[in-house]
């Protein structure tokens, strides 16, 4: 009797196990992010090697990077990590409008960051071909900016989806993954900011 029961429980466990698609997706997404972080790690180590071994690091006529605006940008981006967390909390409590409000706030902060970076880029006196300094600067900030842009794109999709009736009945994997991605992009930026702006 008991063994019969445990068999059927096991079978059911197997079925649940098999259909835990959101769990699999989240696992796969984390694996992907870990792998993605190695690209950044490679760029960072390249940057460190270039900076420590190049004789004329700054191109002629460039004194260094302005840190004030990028710092404000950093504050905005890092704070958005908390804002997106609040949005997620609202979703867990099934407060959709609260979720949407904070979600849109995150998107706005991300967009402000991108705008700030565009302004910074346009005001710089050096280009991508200005030696290793110019190359690595635009490579790192550009590659990170691409990730921020991807994050905002994902957030837009999630926002639109939130208006579909019954969208969260099967779980909120999309929102959780987007949020995780956003934290990832933030952490990368903190390292990047320290490497490029603080360590001059």
């Amino acid at each position: 009797m008991t063994s019969e029961l445990s068999i059927s429980q096991e079978k059911e466990a197997a079925v649940v196990h098999e259909h835990d698609e959101a769990g699999n997706s989240m696992f796969g997404f984390i694996v992907f992010l870990l792998s993605e972080s190695v690209i950044f790690l490679s760029f960072f180590s390249g940057y460190v090697i270039y900076k420590t071994t190049t004789a004329d690091w700054l191109p002629a006529g460039v004194a260094g990077l302005e840190t004030r605006e990028p710092f404000i940008n950093t504050i905005v981006l890092v704070s958005s990590s908390f804002v997106i967390y609040i949005a997620e909390r609202f979703l867990h409590r099934d407060n959709l409008w609260g979720f949407r409000a904070f979600w849109i706030a995150t998107m706005a902060m991300g967009s402000y960051f991108l705008y700030g970076q565009a302004v910074e880029w346009s005001g710089l006196s050096f280009g991508v071909t200005s030696g290793l300094f110019g190359g690595t600067f635009y490579l790192l900030t550009g590659f990170h900016g691409l990730h921020v842009f991807t994050g905002i794109l994902l957030q837009t999709i999630m926002l639109i989806r939130s208006f579909l009736p019954g969208n969260y009945e099967k779980g909120s994997f999309g929102v959780e993954a987007t949020s995780l991605f956003w934290h990832f992009v933030d952490v990368i930026w903190i390292i990047l900011f320290i490497l490029i702006y603080v360590w001059q």
């Binding site: 792998s35 270039y50 490579l139």
Partner: peptide, 25 residues
């Protein structure tokens, strides 16, 4: 693949920029 390929990708992107954009990596 997961830990190695990204490093090659990083190198390949830099090489591609050297060829097409004229960077100096």
């Amino acid at each position: 693949q997961l830990y190695g390929l990204p490093a090659l990708t990083a190198g390949a992107v830099m090489l591609l920029f050297d060829i097409t954009l004229g960077t100096s990596f």
